[in-house]
């Protein structure tokens, strides 16, 4: 294992206030509420960073604007920004994002998790790794990794 922290002193940003959706006064029981950016963001904002006790939102690894979603075509793309360029945790963060979305979205969705262009040294490799079903499945078979992922996801289910 790596002895030191990769980014020992990350910048912590303020958490955005939870946007309370204004409840419509007369609720139409049969109206659709499509899955939107904010809902996806609500799913992933509380994921804990693998090496710090901060959430991805606080570290600005993910923002609401970095999410693309199309409910009709069942497609979502999350672009995240690692805190430092050489961050070896990028894959773990990506894995967390993917697993969380897999568990939270209907099965019809195609999930695409990417590193923001130009923010990571081995961007292409990580992207490939993250979007390869087999490799994701294999990673989750690894008890160490899966424990780590579960730990990071724990706060999102609170």
């Amino acid at each position: 294992m790596v002895t030191g922290l990769i980014n020992a002193n990350p910048i912590v940003y303020e958490r955005k206030a939870r946007q309370v959706r204004s409840a419509p006064t007369n609720i139409d029981e049969y109206a659709d509420e499509p899955i939107d950016q904010q809902e996806i963001f609500d799913h992933i904002r509380d994921i804990k960073d693998p090496e710090h006790p901060y959430s991805l939102e606080e570290l600005k690894v993910v923002t609401e604007d970095s999410i693309e979603v199309n409910d009709k075509q069942s497609y979502v793309r999350v672009t995240f920004t690692p805190t430092v360029e050489h961050c070896s945790m990028a894959t773990v963060i990506g894995l967390c994002l993917r697993v969380k979305l897999m568990r939270s979205l209907p099965s019809r969705y195609k999930v695409d998790v990417r590193i923001a262009p130009g923010t990571h040294a081995t961007e292409a490799a990580v992207n490939k790794q993250l979007n390869d079903k087999e490799r994701v499945a294999a990673a989750l078979e690894n008890p160490n990794l899966s424990e780590m992922v579960n730990e990071c996801l724990a706060p999102t289910f609170a």
């Binding site: 959706r21 049969y30 109206a31 659709d32 509420e33 899955i35 809902e39 609500d42 799913h43 568990r103 939270s104 979205l105 209907p106 099965s107 019809r108 289910f157």
Partner: peptide, 13 residues
């Protein structure tokens, strides 16, 4: 998870 209402989806998660 594919419910038409958001609240239900959240509970489902």
């Amino acid at each position: 998870l594919d419910d038409r209402k958001r609240v239900v989806r959240q509970e489902a998660v």
